[in-house]
Design a protein around this nucleic acid. Sequence first.
DNA 1: ACTGAAGGCTGCCCGC
DNA 2: GCGGGCAGCCTTCAGT
Lengths: 104, 104, 104, 104
Amino acid sequence: MAKKKGIGHNSGAVESKRLKSIIERIERLEEEKKSFADDIKQVYAEAKGAGFDAPTIRRIIRLRKMEPEKIREQEELLDLYMGALGMLTGTPLANAALEREEQK
Amino acid sequence: MAKKKGIGHNSGAVESKRLKSIIERIERLEEEKKSFADDIKQVYAEAKGAGFDAPTIRRIIRLRKMEPEKIREQEELLDLYMGALGMLTGTPLANAALEREEQK
Amino acid sequence: MAKKKGIGHNSGAVESKRLKSIIERIERLEEEKKSFADDIKQVYAEAKGAGFDAPTIRRIIRLRKMEPEKIREQEELLDLYMGALGMLTGTPLANAALEREEQK
Amino acid sequence: MAKKKGIGHNSGAVESKRLKSIIERIERLEEEKKSFADDIKQVYAEAKGAGFDAPTIRRIIRLRKMEPEKIREQEELLDLYMGALGMLTGTPLANAALEREEQK
DNA sequence: ACTGAAGGCTGCCCGC
DNA sequence: GCGGGCAGCCTTCAGT
């Protein structure tokens, strides 16, 4: 049977209460969530005011969430593909990669 | 002068502390935010389990955030354009709109 | 066996060509895609210039992509839930819905 | 004066044609756009079949779209901030950065 | 079938 | 005040 998505008759009042509760809980939680989102935004604003670069901060936070092993793998794959494409010349990243290869 | 985004020499330690503080605060706040996001997801799951349709719930929450006047305007524009396109036939929304027009 | 994602030794040149081809093809296709995206944006700009409301146009396009039956279902669910929440009063949508209910 | 978004009386037919044209043009363009999106997806599938890592390919394409100078700046800032946070130890990226610093 | 990522769209914010 | 760029939300798709 297909999932009922309507509200069965005779149980209207009950279901209605349930729905109301669900919606109000979500709204409450979204408010809280938004509050933290606003706080975060504020910290970024402060960072910017102090002369820091927001995109870089975001990137660091992303990196800190990842396992070091994962990061390493990704960088290696990137270097490998970049090398295959002849894109490893002149950039710091490139040079570092070239050096690494030489050591192997 | 271009905005400094680097970290001035001789103030390394100070700036470093500041940066560290900023990043840790953001991480803390993001954790909190995620916690609420997870809660929200859970409520949607509960709603689904109870037979409610999540997309419709989302839509209702969106509508409740909007001013009634805004909603009305949007529905009217939609009806107007639909009418101009000859798309107002057979649907409940359409019929209701046609009736409204007649009364004017 | 784990998926190899590196490039096997001794086949470097071949794989390299293959990778290069893949990337260039994607880039070419993305250019084309972007070109159409830009065109679309331009038409919306023109629409706006002619006094039309872009969000409503988007909504109509979305609706035209959907099967009428799907649309009807969604509207019904919305009405049903709104009714359960006591939100069906005073809005055109609401009134139309109420009328529909009465006819059943 | 507020922007008219409705359709002026007495010009209904004309405006209607215009709206219809706009919508149909957008729909046509979106079809084309989707067609290229599908092609792109297919190339990624082929790449995967050949053993390449899609996320890395995406990353390379992103990098190739950016100006080299921009990339360099970003990497430098990242290294700088990472250094300030004491996160530059053990990773290839880190080591390369440390070496660079020493040379200055 | 569901969960997690990628892309597209929308609303916001900054800079012009 | 407007347009462009950026972040969040939502939807779709691949993976399990």
